[in-house]
Design a protein around this nucleic acid. Structure first.
Length: 562
RNA sequence: UGGGGCGUCGCCAAAUGGUAAGGCAGCGGCCUUUGGAGCCGCCAUCUGCAGGUUCGAGUCCUGCCGCCCCAACCA
């Protein structure tokens, strides 16, 4: 207590692991696992679990974390998903080495365990239909009733389960159940189903099996087979812990891992449910699982979120048992924190406004040295071309500027970053009164951006040289949903009514300084004063950038307040 | 209304009976060739509520209140 003044306590799971290590509870070992079901893409919520499981293992000498595909339901699972999951975990920065496991690898062993349970009189084949089964289960406040098949002999059960395995019965006609207690207040303990018949090809075992183990039977035993010490899962499995322990106890397994539950991650303005994510994809509300607006790891990767930022986010939010909704701003903070350190600066004009420097010689240009990253001296400098005709950001000019507007206005002098002081001398408008061009003069003595006479300007603008800049497409993203909790809807509505219609804005006439030419997809930049951007894989002859995040905008706040 | 889990600042989250860490957000200020970054300061007399035990309670006890999860042959 007294020595914790400056050392924040570790989370309760790490505390338990540390205690167990100290007491030699698991022989001084730490073995965890990340057990995704390959039925969808990984999202930021999975990242929390990945960081926890791999983190706990790596923090302890000799600790191991396995990647295990929990593939017991051929109806939902595909190898496409195992590939994407492996790719995402690797990208996040974790290495499972040789330890790529599949529950399906244990099918034979699991089936033997089932037989063992039957022989012990702890399991039986039940012929109730799905509807009858539900009716027998009782309700939250009423106990269930025993199945009429509950007292079949061991021999009969053995014969029946074998015939189930051989495919003699139809889907749904019979199941194997644990014989526990139909009156248990814990519904998961009311003779739960252990195996069901499902005649469908499995992505790894093909048609070898037509009976598949349920989660409650397969998971604990897979953990045990692998020698897991701490089986970390989310809160909704708390009710299943008695069953987890029951199976391992009845089977008297050598290894009995400890299940520990923690609260899953929720993010404001986003949804983490795989079902909803799939609907977003299939309903074409987004362009795919890797749409940069998706909370999937592939979406975030494409958007330009660094793996390091996601890890530091996950480490920063902590592990606890209380339900939580992390504000999206917290994630953006981690992204900016990382990108500020690592992203090279570049100048890019999103909404160009033509500027002619009238006293700059026609047909000439010069290269101006510019700092690549003020946070990282080793990033060096680059030369940016300057000439008579430039583009600046439309929003950086106002004919009638309000107070505290530090940018360009008629008669006002500002600095063009790393270039010169310029003064707006004239405004050219089209027939509609729209400003189409600015005429400016520059002060040759301010080359580089400092005035020898010491005069100051309040504003510094980014710019590009019209003849040297490249035209690019920029995709501006905003939150996918308009409300903090997208699943909170009026009766008759669903999450779709909460979709943000302005979550994507495409700008096709952006001008970027030439140093970005040839940048590979995935390359990240900070467009000075605009935000962080990442080269999208859609890039071809013309570059396409995704906006990863805006810069913090204190002017925006001032403006909002009025 | 059976069982389980959880209530500490707007959002996270420490504190394991010794007098409420830290982060994000927010708000002031400094600095600045990004209105970025950085730096400094402010931000819970108080831990869902009410009692009780104790020299001392966020931590222990009792009783309330509130939120979440469980009735897929999903995981």
């Amino acid at each position: 207590m007294s020595n914790s003044e400056n050392t924040p306590g570790k989370d309760f799971i790490r505390a338990i692991v540390a205690e167990d290590l100290a007491s030699q509870k698991h022989g001084g070992r730490v073995v965890t696992r990340f057990p995704p079901e390959p039925n969808g893409y990984l999202h930021i919520g999975h990242a929390k679990s990945i960081c926890l499981n791999f983190g706990v293992a790596s923090e302890n000498t000799g600790g191991i974390c396995y990647l295990r595909f929990d593939d017991t339901n051929p109806a939902a699972e595909e190898s496409e998903f195992v590939e994407s999951i492996k790719n995402d975990v690797r990208w996040l920065g974790f290495d499972w080495g040789e330890s790529e496991h599949y529950t399906s690898s244990y099918f034979a062993q699991l089936y033997e365990y089932a037989l063992q349970l039957i022989r012990a009189g702890k399991s039986y084949v039940c012929d109730l239909s799905s509807e009858e089964h539900t009716a027998h289960r009782g309700s939250l406040s009423e106990p269930g009733r025993n199945s009429p098949f509950r007292d079949r002999s061991v021999e009969e059960n053995l014969e029946l389960v074998e015939r189930m395995r051989k495919g003699e019965f139809e889907n749904g006609s019979r199941v194997l159940r644990a014989k526990i207690d139909m009156a248990s207040p814990v519904i998961a303990m009311r003779d739960p189903i252990l195996y069901r018949i499902h005649k469908a090809p499995h992505h790894r075992t093909g048609s070898e099996w037509c009976v598949y183990p349920m989660y409650d039977f397969a998971h604990c035993l897979s953990d045990s087979i692998e020698g897991i010490t701490h089986s970390l899962c989310t809160l909704e499995f708390t009710d299943h812990r008695p069953l987890y322990d029951w199976v391992l106890d009845e089977l008297a397994t050598e290894c009995h891992p400890q299940q520990i539950e923690f609260a899953r991650l929720n993010l404001s303005y986003t949804v983490m449910s795989k079902r909803v994510l799939r609907q977003l994809v299939e309903g074409e509300h987004v362009t795919g699982w890797d749409d940069p607006r998706m909370p999937t790891l592939s979406g975030m990767r494409r958007r330009g979120y660094p793996a390091e930022a996601i890890r530091s986010f996950c480490d920063g939010i902590g592990i606890a048992k209380r339900d939580n909704i992390i504000q999206l701003e917290r994630l953006e903070f981690s992204v900016r924190e990382d990108l500020n350190r690592t992203a090279p600066r570049v100048m890019g004009v999103l909404r160009p406004l033509r500027v002619v420097i009238e006293n700059y010689p026609e047909g000439e240009s010069e290269m101006l040295p510019s700092v690549n990253n003020p946070e990282d001296a080793s990033a060096g400098t680059r030369d940016v071309p300057f000439s008579r005709v430039l583009y600046i950001e439309r929003g950086d000019f106002l004919e009638d500027p309000p107070k505290k507007f530090f940018r360009l206005a008629p008669g006002r002098e500002v600095r063009l970053r790393y270039a010169y002081f310029v003064t707006c001398t004239d405004v050219v408008k089209d027939a509609n009164g729209e400003v189409v061009e600015l005429r400016c003069s520059y002060d040759p003595a301010t080359r580089g951006g400092d005035a020898p006479d010491g005069r100051k300007v309040k504003g510094t603008l980014h710019w590009v040289s019209a003849e040297h800049a490249v035209t690019a497409e920029v995709r501006l993203y905003d939150r996918l949903f308009r409300v903090e909790d997208p699943l909170d809807v009026d009766p008759g509505e669903d999450f779709r009514s909460n979709l943000n219609p302005d979550s994507l804005e495409v700008l096709t006439d952006c001008r970027i300084e030439p140093s970005v030419v040839g940048a590979e997809p995935g390359t990240r930049y900070q467009f000075e004063r605009n935000g962080y951007f990442c080269v999208d894989p859609d890039s071809g002859d013309t570059l396409v950038f995704d906006r990863t995040a805006t810069l913090r905008d204190s002017w925006g706040k001032v403006k909002k307040r009025g």
